[in-house]
Design a protein around this nucleic acid. Structure first.
Length: 575
DNA sequence: GCCGTTTTCGGCCCGACTGTTTTCAGTCG
């Protein structure tokens, strides 16, 4: 199997991490990170480009040196620089960078002064009070480290769904091409679109003599084979992800898919229903006595127990079985329902595409509108705009809109909600916009009452339209801030404004249960990419998955509205 | 390490906060 772009990106990311701990030139480090991002987001296979002899240094941020290193990684799977760095920095130390509050300097100090090499050891050192003995570390830092490492240990094995989905794609393609394989699909939490995935569960329908398992365990991506039999195999990929593969005959495909999709709680509830009807469900089908009465499709299994088909995203035993029984399952929102995107950046702030390029990309996806929402001045690092620059962009958008037919750019801003709940830009400029997306980027550590009051005050602004990434959480990196979401949602309903489901893979903020809460409170959810390049529109698929887990239907989604329907909804908040 | 030149070396990412200081280093977004 090919060297994935993601693997090359991982090599460069690791190099950057290790260089950082060594205290290398920050711009050199940045070059490696930038290259990792470019390659990770590239729509084409870098390996294929190397094979064709394409000029890699034509890619932005890739020069002669990095192009050569890419070639090296494609050929050998690694590169000499990484090998050298790994010898100099013990394994695990780079992991310490993931602990919130720890950067390269502190990691180096912890390693040199205390010999700490793993998050586990760091946790113990903090518990034993050794961290605060290092110069520059005090009791508060030690306490913060203690809490952060405790949280980190909790879910360290799960990967974000964006990563899992990307890993699954080439595996499924390879499996489907094995002789005798009829169909290869994802199951498990990936198919249920959970925001993080522990193991990848893959299912292949194949004839009995198909060499699916053999090909799978001998593929280049596999680092370790944990188990391998005639119908299932478990392996660990080079990236560390565990993959469980099941092979099933096609007559049992539906039952197997249902079984391995789960969730466990959903399956148990289903089997209980079947028992009442004197039926038995397992991964091979639905049985009455010895007679197999269903199982080739999932629909047939549900039908056999008197239920309509339940979408995978709902299969959590959170009321979906009762809803199916009563025929009141939601008709879940789909990617194709989205008519536009209300949170997007261009290179005017920290995005990478031009206004025109982002508009073209949105249009290409069949969108009717796109809101341009740069950061505001407070976020200086992201080149946030001040009123003067924003006014210029407004004029540019007006001119651009005059040239376009059937597509509209909306004038917006992702304005910072300051510590006291005021907005980072004056009303005089906000009133010229079609929508104002408000976001918290600082002081995510405020106590619940203060954080809530801060956001409520921001919503009091007559121009406030949409609350971006409402909890600020970053998967595996930063927990959600303390905030009373119910209170915020009720305020949003009262003010006629909206909340966002930010579809960035590391955010997916709101969580599924909060989507349900928004729906219950009558607050429309905007599913936005927060795109910083044209490729980021792909993230919307993840947002849709999350929304579906939150039982959202087309009618619950703000940007599933046509422009004509959207305008008055935005206007209502702007008066 | 890349880039863009006034073509071969200097600029690239900056403001605010926190905790630890006694004037600032480290981290974050």
């Amino acid at each position: 199997m090919p060297t994935q772009n993601a693997e090359i990106a991982a090599v460069f990311t690791e190099i950057a991490d290790l260089l950082e701990i060594e205290g290398a030139n920050p711009f050199r480090i940045h070059a490696y990170r930038n290259a990792a991002r470019t390659i990770g987001e590239l729509g084409r296979s870098v390996q294929a480009m190397v094979a064709k002899g394409d000029d890699l240094d034509a890619l932005p941020g890739i020069g002669a040196d990095l192009a050569a290193k890419i070639g090296e990684v494609v050929r050998t799977g690694s590169c000499a620089l990484l090998g050298r760095l790994r010898k100099e920095v013990p394994p695990g130390v780079a992991e310490l960078l993931k602990v919130p509050g720890l950067g390269p300097k502190r990691v180096r100090a912890l390693h040199h002064e205390l010999g700490v090499q793993t998050i586990e050891q760091l946790h113990r050192a903090a518990q034993e009070g050794r961290v605060q003995t290092i110069p520059g570390f005090g009791p508060k830092t030690q306490q913060a480290i203690l809490e952060a490492t405790a949280a980190h240990r909790h879910d360290e094995r799960r990967v974000p769904i964006g990563v899992a989905a990307q890993a699954a794609e080439p595996l499924l393609a390879a499996l489907a091409s094995v002789p005798g394989a009829l169909r290869a699909v994802a199951a498990g939490s990936l198919r249920r679109r959970r925001e993080t995935v522990g193991d990848l569960d893959l299912l292949v329908a194949a004839s009995g003599d198909s060499p699916v398992i053999d090909r799978f365990i001998h593929s280049q991506d596999v680092r370790q084979v944990l188990a391998s039999g005639s119908t299932k195999a478990s392996v660990v990929l080079r990236g560390g992800l565990q993959v469980d593969l099941r092979v099933t005959p096609s007559e049992s495909f539906g039952a197997a898919w249902l079984h391995f999709t789960g969730s466990k709680a959903h399956n148990i509830a289903l089997r209980r229903m079947a028992q009442e009807k004197v039926l038995k469900i397992n991964e091979y089908g639905v049985f009455r006595g010895r007679e197999r009465i269903a199982g080739d499709t999932e629909e047939s299994v549900y039908r056999a127990v008197g239920l309509s088909y339940i979408e995978p995203e709902l299969r959590e035993d959170r009321g979906e079985i009762e809803a199916a029984r009563q025929g009141r399952l939601p008709l879940l929102v789909q990617l194709a329902d989205l008519r536009g995107d209300l949170h997007v950046h261009t290179r005017e702030s920290d995005g990478r595409g031009s206004l025109e390029a982002m508009a073209a990309a949105a249009r290409e996806r069949g969108f009717a509108y796109l809101a341009i929402t740069e950061h505001s001045r407070r976020l200086a690092m992201a080149r946030g705009v001040d009123p003067v620059r924003l006014a210029k962009q407004i004029d540019r958008i007006d001119r651009l809109n005059e040239q376009m037919r059937g597509f509209t750019l909306l004038k917006g801003i992702e304005v910072d909600i300051l510590d006291d709940g005021t907005l980072d830009l004056p009303d005089s400029i906000l009133q010229r916009l079609d929508l104002v997306v408000g976001a918290v980027h600082s002081r995510l550590d405020l106590p619940r009452a203060k954080q809530t009051a801060r956001v409520l005050r921001a919503m009091d602004s007559r121009h406030f339209t949409l609350l971006a990434h409402p909890t600020g959480r970053l998967l595996g990196e930063r927990p959600a801030c303390e905030i009373d979401l119910l209170h915020v949602l009720r305020k949003a309903h009262e003010r006629g404004c909206f909340v966002e489901l930010n579809a960035q893979p590391q955010r997916l903020d709101l969580v599924d249960t909060a989507c349900q809460m928004a729906k219950a409170e009558g607050v429309l959810v905007s599913i936005d990419s927060d795109a910083h390049s044209a490729l980021d529109f792909d993230h919307l698929q993840l947002g849709i998955g999350q929304a579906r887990r939150g039982w959202l239907e087309k009618a619950d989604v703000l940007n599933a509205r046509s422009l004509e329907e959207l305008r008055p909804l935005l206007a209502r908040t702007m008066g």
